[in-house]
Design a protein around this nucleic acid. Structure first.
Lengths: 221, 221
DNA sequence: GTCTATAAGAAGATAGAC
DNA sequence: GTCTATCTTCTTATAGAC
């Protein structure tokens, strides 16, 4: 890795741990193994380092398009997996997806940095929302839509179904970002979540008409 | 409000918008309407201002105990509401809870500040987790447990049921914190979420034995 | 491209008058 | 308790040798 990329790499690490303002140019240089003034041969100033990280992020995000994919690859394969997979396999895939986003070095550091800096620059808030909320919901929603049309699961509202699938995963990731020691617990919860999600929405052998009784109340008051 | 409290108030506002490191003592002083040196008559230094905010937070959190309460008051009343409320009333209550936590000035600013500063100090990460994850899950779980034992809803796993209820609300709050203009959308989603949650778990009139068939698969592969 | 030396400026904090 | 003036320290960034 050349010096320029090592600077970006170490800067991202530090920014994700302390936030931009708490990282000094000398800190980055020290990690790279050079002195601070040498760093200015590679970047105009400190802000340019941050900007370069964001630029690379945008390039990567553009390539990946809909993130939080089940297999991290293409949508067609994901759709097939959803259509033809047993509950046990779906759980394994869900765990792999969860662990990838939690452990992948680049993804993890970037997510933390965006979390810290998001209120400082609305473009970063937008990037956070797109990457961790809107794109995953849209992508998972597309897949779950396929499952619903193939009869694997059943619902009147795919968007809410998708929210029910993804929101717990999102929450478990935010938990483990902050307290990594809870990861084992989170994995168990994730498994129980997917099992229960599957059970709640996969009632194809029960009466469909009763299911449409939308105005049910918890207990009639 | 005396000067000391006005300093804490303006400091919290600024910290929640820019983060501790990006707020200067002179900024806080200016908002209060004094000069920076005068501020040192009230606090030893900048860090002492932050610490005082955290101290007050801990006092308030201790008082409130389990947060994200449906009516913001006591558990007994909340439990009665859960037991005897129609779906429509539950939605109204859910929306009120959501809007309170989104709009309450103190709660909102503190949540944003903790979000920014959580990776800088593990004590802040703990406070965030307790306040926005563990306490709400534990409190809502207690209430939903009551509903389950009274027969209003049905499940084998109250913890996952609680996750299914709360995780979407948590996610909607994080969305609106970043993009307030999405609040109207979020409220509609919240309503649809509670309706669907209620429908999924309130199947008391359908076959209970079939419900226990836990090893169902999406499509047998 | 890397270094040492150093300039330039920002921000936290203090001194002492009122 | 508030002010003006000032000190101190820290951090970014530049100059110029190698």
């Amino acid at each position: 890795m050349d010096t320029r990329h090592r600077i970006l790499d170490e800067a991202l690490t530090l920014f994700s741990e302390k936030g931009y303002a708490n990282v000094f140019v000398a800190d980055i240089a020290e990690r790279v193994g050079i002195k601070a003034p040498s760093l200015y041969k590679h970047f105009k100033n400190k802000q340019a380092i941050f900007d370069a990280i964001i630029e690379e992020m945008n390039l990567r995000f553009l390539e990946e398009a809909g993130t939080l994919r089940i297999n991290g690859a293409d949508a067609v394969r994901d759709a097939e997996i959803y259509r033809h997979t047993s509950e046990e396999q779906l759980i394994t895939l869900g765990k792999n997806m969860f662990l990838y986003f939690l452990h992948d070095d680049y993804t993890r550091r970037l997510r933390k940095m965006l979390t810290i800096e998001q209120f400082h620059d609305s473009k970063l808030a937008d990037a956070y929302m797109k990457q961790y909320v809107d794109d995953p919901l849209s992508y998972q929603g597309m897949l779950l839509g396929l499952v619903v049309s193939s009869g694997g699961l059943q619902t009147d509202n795919v968007d809410i179904m998708t929210l029910h699938f993804y929101a717990p995963i999102y929450m478990l990731i935010t938990i483990c970002d902050r307290e990594p020691k809870r990861e084992a617990d989170a994995l168990n919860t994730l498994e129980a979540h997917i099992r229960q999600f599957n059970r709640l929405y996969a009632r194809t052998d029960e009466g469909k008409t009763k299911r449409r009784n939308l105005s049910r109340v918890v207990i009639d008051g």
